[in-house]
Computed example of a mutant assay.
Amino acid sequence: MAKKKKAAPRAMTPPIPILDNAEDEDLMNDLLAQLDSKDNSMDTESAKVLNDMELNKQADNIDRDNANGKRKDPKGRFIARQARKAAALAKSYAPGNKDEDARLEREAKDEEKAINKICNDLNVHLHEINPDGHCLFSAVADQLALLGIVPKSQATYVHARKQAADYMASHIDEFIPFLPPPGDEDRLMTQEEYFSYCTTMRDTGVWGGEPEILALSKAYHVSIHVIQSSKPSIVVHEPEDMPPPIQNGRVVRISYHRRMYGLGEHYNSLRPNTSFSGALQAIMP
């Protein structure tokens, strides 16, 4: 009796990572950071993996579970938002879109030119900050150390995140009207969602924005000027409800970039072009 032939094993499709744990979130963030690499092959490979992760579908699943009550996880909404951002960036690296590549390159050059002009007018230069989710806090921390507002040992994104998050958590009425839940713009956050937002901002690599800049300004009692290529070219954040002097008139200056870096939104520190600055830079990282 003839033996039956064994069926050829079917090719196994690698499972799509699910963003349900810290390792998968770290993978997504690492791949995003690699998109900022100058190595085009690294950009393409990172974008391919991100595309394979089907991040938009995973973000939809997270939002749907929240809407259906299967999970009540405010942090999941942040992960969903990060996933959609990663998916959009990965798509922009898709090969063969020469017109889109040319447009992005042109916009990046225009942005760089505009920011460099403002820096020259202010007699400052751009000090590059590591392009990751902590860049806002790292840029502000660098400035705070230069101005002598915090010691060098505290000039880290960890300390800056904690100061911003703690201030926001203790001043809920100042911020909650401006922070609708992601994906649900028609209502305000509940207190539970708001405090979860603050915890996520303090303990993870989620991007910071306008609310966090204002919180940093108030927490450190200092004026923060954000330089950008669009109008207005200088956006001022300062604790107007606090009596002067505000850190003896000293100003934190950071730059905001939309196109210069692969991650999209990014912040750098702007250090002064002076001999005093040179002495400071000799002891700064």
Rank of each mutant, 00 (worst) to 15 (best):
L55H: 11
N56L: 12
N56P: 00
N56E: 15
Q58W: 10
A59Q: 10
D60Y: 04
N61S: 06
I62H: 03
D65H: 12
N66A: 09
N66T: 11
A67S: 11
A67K: 13
K70M: 08
R71E: 13
K72W: 13
D73W: 08
K75L: 06
G76L: 01
R77I: 04
R77A: 02
R81Y: 02
R81N: 11
R81G: 00
A83S: 12
R84V: 03
K85L: 10
A86E: 00
A88F: 06
A88P: 01
L89G: 05
L89M: 14
K91A: 01
S92C: 04
S92G: 07
Y93R: 14
Y93N: 11
A94Y: 13
G96N: 06
N97P: 01
N97L: 01
K98N: 12
D99G: 00
A102Q: 15
L104P: 07
A108S: 08
D110Q: 05
E112P: 00
K113T: 11
K113L: 09
N116H: 14
L122T: 09
N123C: 07
V124D: 07
H125L: 03
L126F: 05
L126A: 02
H127G: 03
E128W: 02
I129R: 07
N130R: 15
N130K: 11
N130Q: 09
P131V: 10
